[in-house]
């Protein structure tokens, strides 16, 4: 059962309440999304660690219901 964007955003925000999340449906099949996530929690972390944090917020759906989620993660830049 593919996922919809709101559900993905809700799951991510549960683990990252401060996050700015934007989700793009790449193919309209509920299976291939791109997500840009900005959160303080990523500060000082490697990209691998940042993405692992997002995958764990999806509670095991990544690689199962959700086939592809192109991630762009970053901490808010202190301009």
């Amino acid at each position: 059962m593919p996922m919809d964007a709101e559900e993905i955003e809700k799951l991510i925000k549960e683990d990252f309440p401060d996050a700015i999340v934007s989700i793009e449906d790449l193919r309209g099949d509920g299976d291939h999304y791109a997500a840009t996530i900005i959160s303080e929690a990523f500060a000082g972390k490697t990209r691998v660690k940042q993405h692992q944090m997002v995958y764990s917020s999806l509670k095991g759906r990544m690689g199962n219901e959700l086939h592809a989620l192109a991630l762009q993660t970053s901490a808010p830049n202190k301009a």
Binding site: R47, V48, H51, Q52, Y55, G60, M62, G63, A68, A70, L71, Q72
Partner: peptide, 21 residues
């Protein structure tokens, strides 16, 4: 690697990332 998808790239034993990274 605690990484849910394939592909996965390793350089000198270190997990570097999947396709996005």
């Amino acid at each position: 690697s605690d990484w849910p998808t394939i592909p996965q790239l390793y350089v000198k034993g270190e997990f570097v990332g999947g396709c996005d990274i």
